[in-house]
């Protein structure tokens, strides 16, 4: 499985706008490169990203080949209640990778 790195606060005040950073290990092969025999390397990219806050989608991204290898994303969300933040990536073949972190809101 790919390595996933999440940087998110563990505690926040209610209503606070928090930054979430997520990075996943992935080649993001563009399909425009060739190997040493001159053969095209087929495209293999992560296509979708979604962040769920207690199961509710709060941010979505669609990736194309122009996203650099090991895609990094930083975005914001408002801390509304304590719970789980789930980060999920789906590749071009529909295979999902995900990781969750806990957030305590006071």
């Amino acid at each position: 499985m790919s390595t996933i790195r999440i940087a998110a606060p563990t505690i926040a005040n209610k209503g606070e706008v928090i930054e979430l950073k997520a990075m996943i290990q992935h080649e993001m092969e563009t399909g425009y490169r060739r190997d040493r025999f001159g053969k095209e390397i087929t495209r293999d990219i992560l296509k979708y990203f979604e962040c769920f806050y207690n199961g509710e989608s709060v941010f979505k991204a669609e990736f194309f080949a122009a996203i650099a290898a090991n895609p990094f994303l930083s975005f914001f969300t408002t801390a509304t209640e304590s719970g789980t933040l789930e980060f999920r990536w789906i590749d071009q073949n529909g295979v999902a990778s995900s990781q969750s972190v806990e957030l305590e809101v006071s």
């Binding site: 979505k60 994303l73 509304t80």
Partner: peptide, 16 residues
């Protein structure tokens, strides 16, 4: 890339 966000984002600021 395409990003979808809403009022729960709190701030429309994305980095990649």
């Amino acid at each position: 890339a395409r990003f979808e966000l809403g009022p729960r984002a709190g701030k429309a600021s994305i980095k990649t």
